[in-house]
Design a binder for these strands. Structure first.
Lengths: 174, 174
DNA sequence: GATATGAATGTAATATCATAACAGGTCAAG
DNA sequence: CTTGACCTGTTATGATATTACATTCATATC
């Protein structure tokens, strides 16, 4: 593929670029997300309880997706209950409030990198390093809705995920 | 959205419209798919053995997605082995050869309605009747690739699925 | 035809993902 | 200080998926 020369619009007004594939101050990225989570929860009249907060912290440790049982193991280490519902309930809460996403392809969960912003996420899953990034699924979703409409189908929720290689792993693979 | 008046191109040259949501001669639809499966397998130098053929027949009974264990139950009834790998292996074979698809959202499998044709399928899953249809994911996939490229990510495989209502269930829901 | 070979199938055991149902605890509103 | 809603803990079970190994089958070759 030739180098892109025209500036592609990486940052539409309504959605900031995903930091997952770029070098970034991750501590800041995570603490910011946590702070935004507090306000999202408060705004929704919901409580970011210790388990929920801890689960979000765990997911925020890096830009990968964790299975519910891995989250559970971590919770148990921290003294929380170690039965599956403990993890599933916290994850469900986070997903419902847009603070985390479920990656269907992996049966796993990842922290949302755009909590609070309205966004239609597509997930980019790197096969090299397992990093998961969010891309703007707006145009893809519109195309999907159009294809569906041609068959008389009305889309309510969509799952748009891609497996492939992130910039770093693509370079490594040479 | 206003009514569409320009004819939308429902049947691009390379892909016939999916019959799942339309009234159609299903026996013919299924037997045709089975016949095409034979030639696809032969062309690939693979064998559509009795288990594999039977699994495809089971999937072809209607336009829904079946879990591996439901397929397995049906196989056992027919005298085939009743351990999970029997079903999973046959399903894997069918998926590899493009004769069936895995629906991530459902952890289930559906017969391909376009076997042999080159196609990029998006799956439309009706929440009313559980029917699964394939739509052309070409444009959606292109949009996804563009969004990914903006982050330097190269897509290898994509999952594009929608939950919603099919024409019939939409009418029923009033 | 006998037989070596690789592919396909059968089976046991186990890993992984997910939910139902209920008991007990926490906390704010009345 | 009690009620009621919500949250957490726990038991039990269900659903999905894979590993490893034994056996059988198809077929190409001698």
């Amino acid at each position: 593929m030739p180098a892109r020369h025209a500036p592609t619009h990486q940052t539409p007004a309504h959605q900031s670029a995903d930091p997952a594939f770029a070098a970034h101050d991750h501590a800041h990225c995570a603490s910011g997300a946590l702070a935004r989570a507090e306000s999202v929860a408060t705004a929704a009249g919901a409580r970011l309880t210790p388990v929920r907060r801890r689960v979000l912290e765990i997911l925020l440790e890096d830009h990968r997706a964790l299975g519910a049982y891995e989250v559970l193991r971590r919770l148990a280490d921290d003294g929380f209950g170690n039965q599956p519902p403990v993890a599933y309930r916290a994850l469900e809460f986070l997903v419902e409030h847009g603070l985390a996403h479920r990656i269907q392809r992996l049966n796993a969960f990842t922290a949302c990198t755009h909590a609070g912003e309205p966004h239609a996420p597509a997930f980019l899953i790197c096969e090299g390093c397992a990093t998961v990034a969010e891309a703007d699924a707006g145009p893809a979703r519109a195309a999907l809705e159009a294809a569906a409409a041609a068959l008389g189908f009305v889309v309510e929720r969509s799952t748009i995920e891609a497996l492939g290689l992130c910039p770093a792993c693509r370079k490594d693979a040479t």
